[in-house]
Every structure is written in structure tokens, then in C-alpha cells.
Amino acid sequence: MKVQLDCVHCYLKQVVSTMKRTDLDEDTQYQILYRLMEEIKGLDNSNTPAYNSSVILKSAYEMIGVADPYKSAKRESNDAALSFYPELSELLSRSQDRLKDALKIAVAGNVIDLGIYRDFDIGSAISQVMDEGFSADCSEQFKSELDSTDSVLIIGDNAGEIVFDRMLVEELRRLGKSVTYVVKSSPILNDATMEDAEYVGMTDLAKVIETGSGHLGVSIDDISDEFRKALENASVIISKGQANFESLEGIDWISQKTFFLLKIKCEEVALVSGLKFNSMVFLRKSI
């Protein structure tokens, strides 16, 4: 997905959200924004929104002088999500379609996006997807393709959300599948890192690997050899979240074997996907 005009103000919105988590005075925040406005002029609009956002955020982090402004927020998100774990485990134990409901739980966690939302309601997101289901639902195709593989690659997204992904991983393991789960190599916004994977117990269930960078989504030219090999060898991929969709939907050799599991949080992604804004989807892109 290429940058759209509406993406530009989101770069700055993410920076403002980041600075509000620091103790920078207001004048300094303004100066950082003005400097970043100049940098935005030089961005290549043929890149993905996720890539350009990453460039601006990395510059902002350097100017702010804080390596992980969302560190405490990520821990709070993980703890909040873990508090739902017993209730959701009970829900799955009574489910008539455990895999589909595990996918619904996983997408509900995608509401935990502090780059877009200042706050969020996990319980409401869970209720919404359980009641309404997916606006685009490729779960039957997923089940069919799952029958012919013994492994799944999941490209993770945010802290907190990773707890709900853990429940999906548990269900896949119950079905006899091994799972490789991908996290960021360094902090950016509230994206999950290895620290989050260890904290929520993902490392006890799946092989957890890193992208090789701290970019939002997947910057395909800046990934680790381990992650590239995992992408090449995977027969079924689940891509979590909007930034991963932005990054991967246009790369045919990846998207042709990828199921995108996300909440559509902006109008531009809605246009590209052909789906409704604010809907929760399990999407297989047609090639």
C-alpha cells in the first residue's frame, strides 16, 4: 500500500501521542514538530505509510532522547489483557468453533493501538467481534489451508494484543500445529518486542523471532535473515494489524499465502481493502 494524502497528518499525530508520554515542555514539543515537518517534505510517497511513519518516529525518538516512551504503557496493556485471559479461556472451552473464536479474540486485541488511539476499550472490542463476527471472513479457507500444513507464521503487532494472540497460538497448538511468532527488534510506539513476548508467556508456546528492525509493519528490505527465511518457508501466514497490512499486501510472494487479521482503523486502508472503516476482518487478498 502506497502513501495517501491523509497519511501525512498521521505521521505527526503519532509523534504528538509519543511526546505526550514524556516530560518534554510544550515549547520543545513544538520545535520537534516543526523540524519533523521539514523532514516530511523529503519523504518518498511511493513508500508504504508504515515505512514513512517509522522514519519520522525514529527521528522523533532521537530528538526526544527516550528509547522507549511507551514502556510503561506496554506493561499496562499486557496486564490489562492478561486480566481477560481466564474469562476468554472459559469462553473458548464452551465454543462450538474454537479456532474461529480464537481468531475473533485475536483481532479484538488489535484495538490496543496507542499510535492511533489515546485510549481503548478491550471489553467492548471483544463483545463487538463476538456478536458481529468478521466483516470479511476467510476462516473457512484458513481452516482448509491449515489442514495441509503443520506450521503457521504469525506476524505480531502490539503489546497487550500479544496476549490475545497467545490464545490463538494455544488453539493452533491444540490442533497439532507449531507456531513461529514475530516481534519487533527494538521499540516503536507500543509494538510488541521480545520483552513483551517473554512477559506474557508467548516464548513458552511458540518460537519467537524478531523482525530485525524497529519499523512499524514489515520493512522488507530491512529484515533479519531469520525472518526472511521464515517468510520464504511459510506456507500459511497470519499478519496482525494495520501496519503489517500496509507493508505486505502489495508484495505478492508474501500476500498470496497471508491471511490479514486486523481492525480497519483508517479510511485509506478501508479503500485499499474494499472494506468498511472500523470493521474487524480476516482477509485473504486476491492476487
Rank of each mutant, 00 (worst) to 15 (best):
Lys2Gln: 15
Gln4Leu: 07
Asp6His: 11
His9Trp: 06
Cys10Leu: 05
Tyr11His: 09
Gln14Tyr: 00
Arg21Ile: 08
Leu24Lys: 14
Tyr30Arg: 13
Gln31Leu: 11
Tyr34His: 09
Arg35Gly: 08
Glu39Ala: 15
Ser46Gln: 11
Pro49Ile: 11
Pro49Ala: 10
Asn52His: 06
Ser53Ile: 02
Ser53Gln: 03
Glu62Asn: 07
Met63Phe: 10
Met63Pro: 01
Ile64Thr: 03
Asp68Phe: 06
Asn78Val: 03
Asp79Phe: 03
Ala80Glu: 15
Leu88Val: 00
Ser89Leu: 15
Leu91Ile: 06
Leu92Met: 03
Ser93Cys: 03
Gln96Val: 06
Arg98Cys: 05
Leu99Arg: 04
Leu99Asp: 11
Lys100Gln: 12
Lys100Ala: 06
Ala102Trp: 04
Gly109His: 02
Val111Tyr: 00
Val111Gln: 00
Gly115Thr: 04
Phe120Cys: 05
Ile122Thr: 06
Gly123Tyr: 02
Met130Asp: 11
Ser135Asn: 14
Ser135Gly: 13
Ala136His: 15
Ser139Val: 09
Gln141Asn: 14
Gln141Cys: 09
Glu161Asp: 09
Val163Ile: 07
Phe164Glu: 04
Met167Glu: 02
Val169Met: 02
Leu172Trp: 00
Gly176Arg: 00
Ser178Val: 05
Ser178Thr: 14
Val179Thr: 08
Tyr181Thr: 08
Val183Arg: 07
Lys184Tyr: 10
Ser186Val: 07
Ile188Thr: 15
Asn190Gly: 12
Met194Thr: 08
Glu195Phe: 10
Asp196Gly: 04
Glu198Asp: 14
Met202Pro: 00
Thr203Tyr: 01
Ala206Phe: 00
Val208Ile: 05
Val208Glu: 02
Gly212Phe: 09
Gly212Gln: 05
His215Ala: 15
Val218Met: 07
Asp221Ala: 08
Asp222Pro: 00
Asp222Arg: 13
Ile223Glu: 04
Asp225Thr: 05
Asp225Asn: 11
Glu226Met: 07
Phe227Leu: 07
Arg228Gln: 13
Leu231Tyr: 00
Glu232Met: 07
Asn233Arg: 13
Asn233Gly: 12
Val236Ile: 12
Ile237Gln: 04
Gly241Ile: 07
Asn244Val: 14
Glu246Leu: 08
Leu248Cys: 13
Trp253Asn: 12
Gln256Val: 04
Phe260Lys: 02
Leu262Thr: 10
Ile264Arg: 01
Cys266Ser: 05
Glu268Ile: 09
Val269Leu: 02
Val269His: 01
Leu271Trp: 05
Ser273His: 07
Leu275Glu: 13
Asn278Met: 14
Ser279Cys: 08
Val281Asn: 15
Phe282Asp: 02
Phe282Glu: 02
Arg284Ala: 08
Lys285His: 15
